[in-house]
Amino acid sequence: MEKIPSGACKTLHLVRHAQGMHNLESEKSRDPLTSFEFFDAQLSSQGWQQVRQKRKDVCANGLLKRIELVITSPMSRTLQTAVGIFHGEDQPELSDVTSYEEGNGRISDNDQQPTFNRPPIIALEVCRERLGKYECDKRGTISHYRSHFPAVDFSLIENEDDILWEANKREPFGDVLARGMKFINWLWTRKETEIAVVSHALKTVKYVQSAFLMKV
């Protein structure tokens, strides 16, 4: 059996965003998915609780020390989840979810030197939810996200506005898979070997997994 060269393997930690407001409301009906009220849906209160718990978990099990890079979809709920888990409070058991929620997970400029590792976070358009039709999956401007999530690198996103989302057309699954392949091809160009990917629904994650298996 041919030996795999050192550095040729990567460990991916696939993370679905915490509960969003659209998830909470869609349990009652499908209307919130197409309602402008849930445009680029943010995390619910329960979602923020999930972020706090996951932050505790990654700190307690040592995972945060190993993660070299975090990649996230450029949507509010994934950005909030990524920043909250990987750049959150140094002592999560003391964190105030309410104030953290109001700040969109921002880290104050007055914070002291962090005790825990804060890996770089990169936003990628190809990691978004399946595109089209649902307002909750339409993103805002990159300028807006930059102002609310200053720790995230948005430099790889070319367009200020969302030119991918279409109101009357749902993205074909084949196109989702193609996005997954594009992402995996890009991933292999990175030097990091242990990476967290914060994305969307289980079905979308499965397409990323399929693309990864096809690549290897």
Rank of each mutant, 00 (worst) to 15 (best):
D111M: 11
I107S: 12
S99Q: 08
L64I: 15
I85S: 01
V70R: 01
L64A: 06
Q113C: 13
T115N: 09
K65A: 15
I85E: 01
E129I: 07
D109H: 12
K138C: 12
G84T: 07
P119H: 07
F86N: 05
H87N: 14
N104I: 08
Y134D: 07
L64S: 02
I85K: 06
T141I: 06
I85G: 07
R66V: 08
D90Q: 02
R118T: 11
G88A: 08
V70M: 02
P74Y: 08
Q113L: 13
C136T: 15
G84A: 07
R77G: 05
T98H: 12
K133H: 09
T81M: 01
T98M: 10
D109K: 14
G103I: 08
G140C: 09
G140M: 08
L63P: 05
L69R: 07
G88R: 06
T115C: 11
L124I: 12
Q80G: 04
T141N: 05
E135T: 12
E89R: 09
T141S: 15
R77M: 03
M75I: 09
E125G: 04
R128G: 13
S99V: 09
I122R: 08
K65F: 08
L131T: 03
H87D: 10
T141E: 07
S73K: 04
F86V: 07
R139M: 11
F86G: 05
M75H: 12
P120K: 06
N104S: 12
A82I: 08
C136N: 05
K133F: 10
S99E: 08
D109W: 10
P120D: 05
S108N: 11
T81F: 05
S108E: 10
S99P: 02
N117Q: 13
T98E: 15
E102Y: 13
K138P: 02
S95H: 02
E89F: 11
R106Q: 14
V83D: 02
P114K: 02
I67Q: 01
M75L: 15
A82E: 03
S95T: 11
I122T: 09
R77L: 08
D137R: 12
K65P: 02
F86D: 03
K138V: 03
D90K: 00
R118P: 00
F116M: 06
R128V: 07
V83W: 03
L94S: 12
S95F: 00
R77Q: 07
C127F: 12
R106D: 00
S108M: 06
T115W: 10
I122S: 04
I67H: 04
V126F: 10
G88T: 08
I85Y: 03
G140N: 12
T72I: 02
E101G: 11
R139Q: 07
Q91V: 14
N117T: 13
L69D: 00
D90H: 01
C127D: 00
I107H: 04
R130H: 05
G84M: 06
R139E: 01
E135G: 02
T81Q: 00
Q112I: 13
